[in-house]
């Protein structure tokens, strides 16, 4: 499938915390949706400044020792290279079309056709910024749980109606994966809790047409190890076009 509402899935990579499961999940989804996967290594300017600061030293893992910071830029370049390599390895294994770039920061807003990956917060990582948590302008957000329960299984779509674009997107993802689509209708009246009953099969992906009023629902999904894809349903769907020729850049 290839829906022109979505051009790519973007995952931000930082030095020191490479989320293999997040990259793999994003790569699988990109393949199923027929879109590109962009790995963007963010150069943290804060880290670049560290080398010139006296009394600032680095607590290195795994040896758990303090070291002076001599050349943060070089370290950052090494981290970027390592990220590129790992990203290519994981994304390539998913058979997704992937690209890699480095950027000075999380600059600006995501592009309108981007689905932004929100990985689980790693140890020591600060809470995500508002931009990171709710990237405005993005076509969607893919929230990755700490532990992914299943890599195969049905796709569940939570929409208010049957004509929502998110339902079509979820159906296309399910078809592409050769899996079933389960549709749960969200109540129109906010405040009514919705939760799959016992015996409800653990899906591989939960798709929402918009952030539901009951934010406990996607949180519950995440706690159960189910990745959550929240799409902006207010954007019109465009006719599908043939997938682009793959360009893999590592």
């Amino acid at each position: 499938m290839s829906d022109r509402r979505y051009r790519r899935i973007v995952i931000h990579l930082r030095g020191g915390a490479f989320h293999t499961e997040a990259v793999r999940l994003a790569g699988d989804l990109a393949r199923l949706m027929g879109i590109d996967l962009l790995g963007r290594f963010v150069r943290d300017e804060n880290v670049a400044r560290l080398a010139g600061l006296p009394a600032v030293r680095e607590f290195r893992l795994p040896e758990r020792e303090w070291h002076t910071i001599e050349d943060a830029s070089a370290t950052m370049e090494l981290a970027a290279a390592a990220s590129r390599r790992l990203f290519a390895q994981v994304a390539g294994a998913c058979s997704a079309r992937y690209l890699f770039e480095t950027a000075p920061a999380l600059n600006g807003m995501p592009e309108a056709e981007d689905i932004v990956v929100v990985p689980p917060r790693g140890a020591g990582e600060p809470a995500p910024t508002r931009t990171e948590a709710e990237p405005k302008g993005a076509a969607g957000m893919l929230f990755v749980p700490y532990r992914i329960a299943r890599r195969q299984g049905p796709v569940v779509a939570f929409t208010a109606g049957s004509d929502e674009p998110a339902l079509a997107t979820a159906a296309a993802i399910a078809a592409s994966a050769g899996e079933r689509l389960l549709h749960l209708r969200l109540p129109e009246t906010p405040g009514i809790p919705v939760a799959p009953g016992p015996g409800f099969p653990t899906p591989r992906l939960a798709v929402f047409g918009r952030m539901p009023a009951d934010t406990d629902l996607p949180a519950a999904m995440l706690r159960r190890g189910i990745p959550v894809l929240i799409l902006r349903e207010d954007r019109p769907a465009e006719p599908a076009e043939p997938p682009r020729r793959p360009e893999n850049h590592g």
Binding site: N46, V56, F59, G124
Partner: peptide, 22 residues
Amino acid sequence: VLLRTPMGFTLAPARDGQVVPP
């Protein structure tokens, strides 16, 4: 500010959440 570096963690002087330039 507590920062995550490519190889670990570090503490550095900050202003408004950003590291003070050297």
